[in-house]
Structures are given as C-alpha cells and as structure tokens.
Amino acid sequence: MTPLDAVRAAWFAEVLKVRRSTVPAMTALAAAFPAAIAALFMLIAADPDRARRLGILGAKSSLTGVTADWSGLLSFLAQVVAVGDLLLVAFIATWVFGREAQDGTLRYLLALPVPRWAVVTAKLAIVAVWTIALHLWISGLFCLVGLALGLPGATGTVIVGGLATAALAAALMLAVTAGPVAAAASAGRGYLPPLAAALGALLVSQVAAALGFAAAVPWSIPAVAAGLAPGVALGPGAVLLAAVTACAGVAATVTWWQSSRAGA
C-alpha cells in the first residue's frame, strides 16, 4: 500500500464515521444560532423604537456598536468566528480524535497495516473540511439574513471584504486550534482534557485581548485579524506565532500517535 493509498483508506474511514453520525447536523444547527442572533440584532438596530414596541428590546436599552447594514452584519460574523470558532473547532477535533479512546477503538487503530501518520492526516483533514463546510454554511446564512432584511450597503467591496475577513479569522482559528486540541484529545484519551484546554485557551485569549496583548496569544490572533482588537494590527509576528502553534500542535499529535501504545 502506498502512503497515498493509506491516507485514502483512513480518509474513507473518517468520512464514513462523519456521515453516519448526527454530530455534523448538530454542529450545523449550533452554527445557525449566531445567524438568528444576527438577524435579531439587525432588526433592532434598524428600528429600535419598533423593537421596543414589539418587546424585543427593553424600554431604556439600546444596542451599541451595531449598525443595520451589510458592514455591521459581516462585522458581527467576524466577531462570531473570531471567538466562537475556537469552541467549534475544539469540539470537532475533540470528537474526531477523542472518541477513539472513548469508544475503545484506539487500540485497533494503532495496529493497522497503515502508517499511523496516515490516520492522523486523514483525521486532521476531516477536521479542516468539516470546519470549512461549517464556515461556508454560517457565512451563507449571514448573507441570507442580509438579503432577507434588505440591509443597505450591499457593495461588492463591503461584502467581499467582510467575508474575506471572516474567512481569514476562521482559517487562523482552525490553524491554531485543531492541532493542539487534537494533541490534547489524543494524549488525554477522551473528551474532557481537550475541551478543558479549549476553554482555558478561550479565557487566556480574552484576557490577553483585554490587556492589549492579543497578537501575543495564538487564540486571540483571529480576533486581531477580524479587527476586534483596537490598536493591534495583524503583523508578521502574529502570523508566525499562529503558524508555529499550528505546526507544534500537529507535530505533537503525530508524535503521540507514532509513539503511543494505547494501553499504558
């Protein structure tokens, strides 16, 4: 079997596991929730008085920083991606890697006539494809919200620029999260260690952003890319840090799989 055939075999297995599961549908449903929130916010921002009359906004409340136009909508998308994708990618990577130990299938995966790195490659690929599919889904939903509400400011520059910013934030979050979470799920042999690590990363990234060090913490770099960290620009240092984090996570995952005996 060639290395490519080995990766194909592992990919076939991973795709089948995803196809037979309801988890992808659940993640799609969860990813639709921010679009519903966005629609609500756009409705309120477009006409706060009507919102108060309808009872969806308190009498003395107001939405600050939200504008009812395409720019505001796609800015909200970037915010959702820059923060929410950490949990989304962590959840997917945890499910893809952590379930093997949880379901008792790891000991069989480690004794297959294919290189273990091929299995890891297929798993990381499925995490990436799943995340990208969800990103396209959520971006599409946001666009539908914009079209349905007839938001103003639908210029090509605004829409392409807004979607590109969100895509960049999503790509960065996928890069800095998938590998480390996969490593935590593999070494932690289950669901809780990687999810705990992701929550820790989320906390650290929020604190770092609040203190003005967003570019120095891998998991707040997507927020920098989304323009959510005032005064902090996405420089080469931040991109390098994201790349190093991604490589370290993948390397740690592959190393664990290559050396693991599954039953220690």
Partner: peptide, 25 residues
C-alpha cells in the same frame, strides 16, 4: 509499540477486551 512495522498487522488479528466498534457504523 509505534516502532512495530505496520506490515506485521497484515498477518495478525486480535480481539482484546471486547470489540472496538463505532456505535453508529
């Protein structure tokens, strides 16, 4: 462990501590 030639597993089959099955497959 991980340094075992992968090809060996073409010739070995095993069932240890119950079958390792994916519930939805």
């Amino acid at each position: 462990g991980g340094r075992t030639p992968a090809d060996l597993w073409r010739h070995v089959g095993y069932l240890v501590e119950g079958p390792g099955l994916y519930p939805t497959l």
